[in-house]
Amino acid sequence: MTRYVLGRLGSVVLILLAVCLFTYLIFFKLSPDPAVMICGKTCTPDRINSIRDVLGLNQPILTQFWEFLRGIFAGRQYGSVHCPAPCLGYSFQTNESVWSMITARLPVSITVAVGAAVLWLLAGVIGGLVSAVKQGTWWDRTAMALALGGVSIPNYVLALLLQYVLVVKLQVLPFPSAVPFADNPVLWFESYLMPWVVLAVGYACLYARLTRSNVIDTLSENYFRTARAKGLSGSLIMRRHALRPALTPITTIFGMDFAGLLGGALITETVFGLNGIGKMAADSIAKNDQPVIMAVTLLAAFFVVIGNVVVDLLYTALDPRVRVVSS
């Protein structure tokens, strides 16, 4: 087991290195010259050249990549500007190190992701479970029709609709803003409620459909029939012999979805004006602020890779068949 864990962690390092390299190549070789972007309107060739010198763009690509990697662990100097470790680059448009931009915004994205995840897991799994147990009834049909509708509504449409109804018309919720929890827990909750719901609806509908089909599959398994033939109580049969097998595959999907969201909910954060990683990504794309775009891409990749490993390890705990093979 320890060997398996160490092996997985080793592969994480390699994957992250490969992601770093590819991201670096894409952003610094295939996109417009960052020196020109920084130089602005009153630009001269000399100025471009001196910016290229400061950014190290005149050096060979591998040296540049090495400098970038070294910066992550040891910090980096851009002319007179110092970027302390971990340096993921420096935004000359905002005059901030990208790392400090990320750390300022990450709590907002985490709050959005965690809140939404709790909502969609609860609604999706419970809804799907009830539908499976009441298969073919009006509840099942209604819930699944709603789920299909929910999956089909784009995030931004739902966000604008909710804002119009709940904030503008009924005025039951404030306009979302990144209120810290410690300042005002009630306002914090009210501010994040709409982003959570908007983000959760699509996932909840998807998870409801997944849970329903997984549970229905499990109910037709031979071991479920055995559990009934053993005379076990209904709740024990459902809990032990239907839910656990049905929900185990959902952890995989959940791990990936949640990890993806930690890298920023681009549309939701932008529509609600929440200053998270997603909005920062959208803003930096609009301004072509390459160090930020690259760092956000790396961060998203980092979360997805780590999410994958966590799911793999969790799976070995949840499914004994995987445990034996892995050890």
């Binding site: 031979n222 005379g231 097998p245």
Partner: peptide, 28 residues
């Protein structure tokens, strides 16, 4: 009733099924 039958199943009348691998729950 289902409740009364549960007291019979496994207790007074037991069953052994055809495919033991799929009839046992792999998670426990």
């Amino acid at each position: 009733s289902e409740r009364d039958l549960r007291a019979v199943r496994g207790n007074a009348i037991s069953m052994v099924f055809q495919d033991p691998l799929s009839s046992l729950n792999p998670y426990y």
